[in-house]
Design a protein around this nucleic acid. Structure first.
Length: 466
RNA sequence: GCCCCCAUCGUCUAGUGGCCUAGGACACCACCCUUUCAAGGUGGCGGCACGGGUUCGAAUCCCGUUGGGGGUGCCA
């Protein structure tokens, strides 16, 4: 039998990393088993849905490389299906109408030991109508066991499950109903979703049995939630966890994908960096952990650095382009050739593509950006800084313009003033690039050119003299 | 409160009764390399929550405790 998995987000906020991982796991399991991956948008709560979030879901998934075989389906366009299901429940006495308002229920059950709806309308024989919600009649006795590949078999006593609402009093279906109806209709074989859904799963099972008696239940897999440093569930409200933010920051989708895959799952052996093909081949739902994982941005960034460094230089250049386009320099001052020369040196120094512009901005800006602290420390208070600058100007004016030559010449300059190269290069670096960190200096000078280098050296001297 | 889930270094994890003196990675520290910063190399710090069982033997199995989390909506 071919497996069918679905990812069914609701468009109630931007797409966050936790959703990304759930989508990825669904996709991985579907691909590995040669099954079908379905995208279904659960937008039954019209109050909270927004079309831009729907676009966000799809673009985030495309960015991660998670292509779907069917869909996107929209529950808002499948309402008649849910109505039919509701009618079926009513005609089979599996559900009943209720006109209790939330306030009334709360008031009435306040004193009860078990909170929740008390079954007040069970025997009242109410028909449909305005202000009347449809409730599922949960058996009083017995229990429901959920078979979950990563959690075992949690069991829930029916006594602890209230008669839950499946259709709102305004006629719209609730998540729990639409979800089950669609899974049955779409032949979903594996329900892989976040752990927070585990407590409502017995309702899913009860509904499934009532709606499709004899049909096999899907296999459940509740993956642990992602948490913050305080071990609280990552939420859209409180945390900066939108996939989009990482994308804009210059995180590579393959790095994000790899990192996400490892949050709750590990391949055999001491490996961490895995290609998509390896992920597909080795991922196993059964091996997913059951405890919550902390989304560690530092490790993500480490992965990203690994992926950036592994890129062929031309790819690195191409993928840096969008970030270069937003650089702080005038567009016409950017030189692809100059960037290409520095690219290999930049590539091994950044953790995100967003850091690329500041590594090379001194080349494309008319004046070097000024890092006041670096200027003060390495030029104003730097050892023999003035002498080094003056001496360097003299040498640089005459030597041939080549990184190796510049290196040797500068080493000689340093020696004359009792400094090693490491110290001697500082005033020059700050004068020319504005900072005391950056790509190797002599290669940078080679790209900048003799004239601009000398100008900046002289400007620094002038500034020092003030 | 009630229901459910979870528990190995700070973090992500390997581990499925002997191979564990508990392995790897991130982070951190030191050293090496070195024109800065990175990268790389070497080393270090650091963990089986606790208490009972079961067993010749337990990180691994069982029970309890504690701690953490999720749910408890006419949200998903």
């Amino acid at each position: 039998m071919t497996v069918r998995l679905r990812f069914s987000p609701s468009p109630t906020g931007y797409f966050h990393v936790g959703s990304g991982r759930t989508a990825l796991y669904n996709w991985l399991e579907a691909r590995r088993r040669g099954g079908t991956f379905i995208l279904r948008i659960e937008d039954t709560d019209t109050e909270r849905n927004r079309p831009e979030w729907v676009d966000g879901i799809q673009s985030a998934m495309r960015w991660l490389g998670l292509d779907w075989d069917e869909g996107p389906f929209f529950q808002s366009q499948r309402l008649s299906l849910y109505q039919e299901a509701a009618a079926h429940l009513v005609s089979h006495q599996a559900a009943y109408y209720c006109d209790c308002t939330q306030e009334v229920v709360r008031e009435r059950t306040k004193a009860n030991a078990t909170p929740g709806y008390d079954g007040h309308c069970r025997e009242r024989g109410l028909g449909p109508g305005p202000g009347r919600a449809l409730r599922f009649r949960v058996p009083d006795e017995g229990s429901t066991t959920v078979v979950d590949v990563i959690r075992g078999m949690p069991t829930f006593d029916h006594a602890t499950i209230e008669d839950f609402v499946v259709v709102r009093s305004n006629g719209s279906p609730l998540f729990v109903l639409a979800n089950v109806v669609d899974d049955i209709d779409m032949g979903v074989t594996h329900v892989l979703r976040a752990e927070e859904h585990l407590p409502t799963t017995p309702k899913y099972v009860l509904l499934h049995r009532a709606l499709a008696p004899g049909h096999e239940l899907p296999v459940f897999a509740h993956v642990p939630v992602l948490v913050d440093e305080r071990r609280q569930k990552l939420s859209k409200r409180k945390h900066k966890v939108a996939l989009e933010d990482y994308r804009e920051q210059g995180v590579l989708p393959e790095a994000m994908r790899n990192y996400l895959a490892l949050l709750g799952w590990a391949p055999g052996g001491n490996r961490e960096i895995l290609s998509l093909d390896e992920l597909v081949a080795e991922f196993r739902l059964e091996d997913v952990n059951s405890s919550p994982a902390f989304f560690d941005e530092r490790k993500l960034l480490h992965f990203n650095g690994e992926y950036i460094r592994a890129l062929p230089v031309d790819d690195f250049v191409a993928r840096s382009q969008p970030f270069l386009d937003d650089g702080p320099w005038a567009k016409e001052d950017f030189s692809p050739a100059a960037f290409r020369d520095l690219a290999p040196l930049v590539q091994e120094r950044v953790k995100t593509l967003g850091e690329v512009p500041e590594m090379v901005d001194f080349v494309f800006l008319p004046e070097p950006p000024l890092d006041a602290k670096a200027w003060d420390k390495r030029v104003v208070r730097g050892l023999a800084a003035r002498d080094v600058l003056e001496d360097a100007i003299g040498e640089y004016a005459l030597c041939s313009w080549d990184a190796q030559v510049l290196h040797d010449v500068t080493a000689a300059v340093g020696e004359r003033h009792g400094l090693g190269l490491a110290k001697a290069q500082f005033p020059i670096r700050v004068a020319v690039t504005g900072r005391d960190v950056g790509p190797p200096l002599f290669e940078s000078l080679a790209v900048l050119g003799r004239q601009r280098t000398l100008e900046r050296l002289r400007a620094a001297l002038a500034r020092l003299g003030e």
